[in-house]
Amino acid sequence: MRNMTILVVDDDPVIRRMLEKRLEKAGYEVLIAEDGYQARKILPQQHIDVVLTDLMMPGSIGGIEVLDIAKNISQNIEVILITAHSSIDTAVEAMKKGAADYLEKPINFDELFLRLEKIANVQSIMRNAQDLSQAMDTTESAAALTIQNLEIRTAELQSRIESIEAILRDEQNPPYERIYKVLDLLTDPQ
């Protein structure tokens, strides 16, 4: 399984440093943003699997706004919010807007790693499903082209056979003329 890249967004330098250390130790690629504004800059420039963001940050870009920005870039970016107990209602609102989960402060790292593991599993299943459907699409469009050509060609030949039958059965014309007409039709390159 490929290592996930996690963007940590928190204005508290102590928490930032702690998250960075623990996540790197656990084998994740970690990017750091000191606030929502930095996150807004980093998000479109890097491939990010998970955003771990504080809900309350100074300025007009808080955790909810970071969530919106991330989901706008790709629905595949999962966002986990870190909240104080008092702001759980806001966190639930965030879940409705597509956040994967929220964690209460102080952060329980076992809980955090379990959530990340779950996200990694889902993402790997998603990728697998995408690969399979990609392969199916390729096979299907190649097969479709062949079948369509055969379908049209068969219909053309069928209609030619019907014309030939009509000519051969047409008793208004003498037999040799019918044969010439049929030969004309058969040498027609269409």
Partner: peptide, 9 residues
């Protein structure tokens, strides 16, 4: 309209 890999032949 039928499926892209289907045929009515």
């Amino acid at each position: 309209i039928i499926g892209s890999t289907e045929s009515l032949t």
